[in-house]
Design a protein around this nucleic acid. Structure first.
Lengths: 182, 182
DNA sequence: CGCTTTAAAATACGATCGTATTGCAAAACC
DNA sequence: GGTTTTGCAATACGATCGTATTTTAAAGCG
């Protein structure tokens, strides 16, 4: 057999290409052929690592989520020991907001997938929302406010992605909310 | 020539079918043929009223927006004369949230279109955001809080659509925010 | 009434889709 | 070192896509 290959790495390579296509031309432009071309590989190779297109999509969605998770934990651990809850929360929220170019691309992909999975029967979506909610609640004076905080961040992200809000507007609104809650 | 026909009505008939397809199977399932079948008409007729698929999509998006607008003004005018700002604002927000089945379908369509237009070059999106923002600001003690209120509502709507939040959770978070602001 | 215009259907066309199938070369294994 | 397994490419297949073209029939108008 040919040289042993890192399956996860190959899959990620393809998923990255998928996300580039999705961010640039939308999820509807994501086809096996386009993704293969964007990755610089053959259609057959994509098929080798993903039996179906849906399998590929689900994997790519997982990659986006993992990346977000990684960004968040990195930003949080960069805060040093024993940061104030408010600082931690703000860091978390700002990290997830699509403010720079890379996280903007991720956000576009996540948005496209959101619309994609909203209709799917089930099984695809995981519940990182619940755990995020719990974490936010642990940082707030009033844990019940977590639902609103998460929703506010999501909404700000949407409007930033859509171009209706600037990054500054989003940050201002976020800080105003934190002022209210702390 | 055949009987004169109400063009707008025919277009709306087709757009309604489009939205039914999009709400049930996602925007990717929206094809000229599917829409025609869902509307119970021929492909040729769809082509007669929309020269391209994109033209059809843009029209459908406009219909969704108009319907939302209509719902809001109806709900507001049902409040009677001189309602309190807080009541007006709450009515506005609750009306837009996808809490019942019909507005949920509209919300799904709007979400799908959001992902669709986020990538499109330009021209498609209108700026009803700005006018909504102004209206909300006029109802708030602190007009600057409008940005956050609108984003919160959008985020709540997303999570309700995605099934992560229940309608009750969304309403509770909304009222909590109004308590903070008034 | 006959001509013309137009709503609507039917069909055709080439491109692209997801996926199945087949072929082949390279390396791991006995 | 031959055999077998596996990574990957190539290609084929039928379905579906958006759209162009052609036909049919009905009704407005002189």
């Amino acid at each position: 057999m040919p040289k042993q290959v890192d399956v996860r790495e190959r899959r990620t390579l393809i998923a990255d290409a998928l996300m580039r296509v999705a961010a640039a031309q939308g999820l509807e432009a994501v086809s096996v052929r386009h993704v293969a071309a964007a990755a610089g590989v053959s259609v057959g190779m994509v098929q080798h690592y993903f039996r179906t297109k849906d399998e590929m999509m689900v994997f790519a969605l997982d990659v986006v989520r993992d990346r977000n998770q990684t960004r968040v934990t990195a930003a949080l651990s960069a805060l040093g020991p024993d940061p104030q809850p408010r600082v931690m929360l703000r860091t978390l929220l700002v990290t997830i907001l699509p403010l720079d170019e890379q996280s903007r691309a991720d956000g576009l992909v996540a948005l496209a997938f959101l619309a994609y999975t909203a209709v799917r029967p089930a099984g695809v979506k995981s519940d990182d929302t619940a755990q995020m909610l719990g974490f936010i609640a642990s940082l707030l004076p009033d844990p019940d406010a977590a639902v609103g905080v998460l929703a506010l961040m999501e909404g700000l992200g949407m409007y930033v992605l859509g171009g209706q809000y600037t990054a500054e507007q989003a940050l201002t609104a976020l800080d105003a909310q934190l002022d209210l809650l702390f």
